[in-house]
Write a protein that binds this DNA or RNA. Sequence first.
RNA 1: CGGGGCGUAGCGCAGUUUGGUAGCGCACUUGGUUUGGGACCAAGGGGUCGUAGGUUCGAAUCCUAUCGCCCCGACCA
Length: 490
Amino acid sequence: MEQKKGQGKQAQNKEFVKEITPKAVDYSQWYIDVILKTKMMDYAPMKGFMAIRPAGYALWEKIQEQLDRRFKDTGHENAYFPTFIPQNLLQKEADHVEGFAPELAWVTKGGNEILNEPLAVRPTSEAIICDFYSRWIQSWRDLPILINQWCNVVRWEKSTRPFLRTSEFLWQEGHTCHRSEEEAEAETLKMLEVYREFLETEMAIPALAGRKTEREKFAGSLRTYCVEALMTDGRALQAGTSHNLGQHFAKVFDITFLDQDDLLKHVWQTSWGVSTRLIGALIMVHGDDRGLVLPPRMAPTQVVIVPILGKKDRDRVLKSVLELEGRLKESVRVKLDDREEHSPGWKFNEWEMRGIPVRIEVGPRDLDKNQVVLARRDTGEKEFVSNDDLPARLQQLLVEIQEDMLARALEFREANTRRGADYEEFKRIMETERGLYLAPWCGDDSCEEKVKNETRATIRCLPFDMEPEGDKCFACGGKAVEAAYFARAY
RNA sequence: CGGGGCGUAGCGCAGUUUGGUAGCGCACUUGGUUUGGGACCAAGGGGUCGUAGGUUCGAAUCCUAUCGCCCCGACCA
């Protein structure tokens, strides 16, 4: 045993613990720091996989809760399909296999037996679901089929980032069948709008809705629509997709129904999904150098109460905050942090890092004045509120924060969206501040390819109902046929 | 799959150049004093240094191989 320990002198570090790299120093590192320090995830012992910890999973549960309600409201039901897809089913749709082949994980052994047909771990479930649908549908009376599945999927990714791109992720996939092309198209657009509205209302993320180009569309679809959001580093993130599958899958999987006119027809299908990637979007749209900033409607805990427990006043403060917690519980998701092993200052920093929208401070001085201190996470502003006004003020404040966060995100996107037809300017912007660039485009695949090679920017979406400003493609000079949003993407 | 970086206590790191039997901060445990923006004192617990070989009297340190992770690209929710 040595006698060296406890030399007595401790470093007097009065600074805040520098746990998070500032955004401006290294954006990727900032992102990683935030998700690790807030205990949202942890890396798995295998590359590309992660554990989603309670702090992260609670956000996924909020997403599920809010989206699931919207799915039900639009007539959908949940179901569950197998994790594995036999090779032959996956191979039926040519574009589909080709698109997913490089990222498939295969099961080749069951117990000690080599399987006579390998099973792919689902990268998406069109193939297996279509196989079921071909048996479930006979008559026009069986349509529409409106089913959604919440599950995990596996795509063997070469480069991965927590939440944004991992080899396994959680998502929901809606799979519907319809009698007509019009009905399928309407469904595709309806669900796209559900996503857009959800992102805006709940996550305070303004999203651009539009159509994907041929290059960017889903493998096997007729048309793909998407919602795209702009992150605070100027890169775009595909937040959700909705596909009109046409009859491609119906034909190869033989999904037919006898229509009222006595003719055997193929169904028209759609599929649509969002994933745990949305958690990454939430972090990158709203987070700051102190950590997470959660919109009140998404926050698993909306309000945290931090009592200031001096020795003399400990009991009466504690009694007061317990009573306060009980009183607020009915109207907000509130949590009381009455741990005595941490100082109030430590708790302030901790809950700010975790993004809790509102903090209530209650100390002896507040008790004397029948008031509390409210501090909002997004702006750091503090205010004094009398106990009588508190529940009403809190409700109002949460609404204000939600609205302000959306407004700020929208303002950021506006400030980082350029419109123009100057390819040189575009190249410079994609190299420097990035953001979105709305430009007239010729619609040609090879032109898009060229832009990508030269700038690493891609077409994020072709917005609805928008005429190109100018008649020449900004990149190749050909005839402009549509307006396109370009950006570097995640 | 290319380019770069890194594997030493739960986390962050020092020690590797020049080989000598492992240390610091945070966290953790116990007791006490504290509590309005990351408190303090004292006493403790915890590591076969990614893995496998090799060189050596002796390897965290040198050599070889191997595995993994992170970042930046090519390909993709």
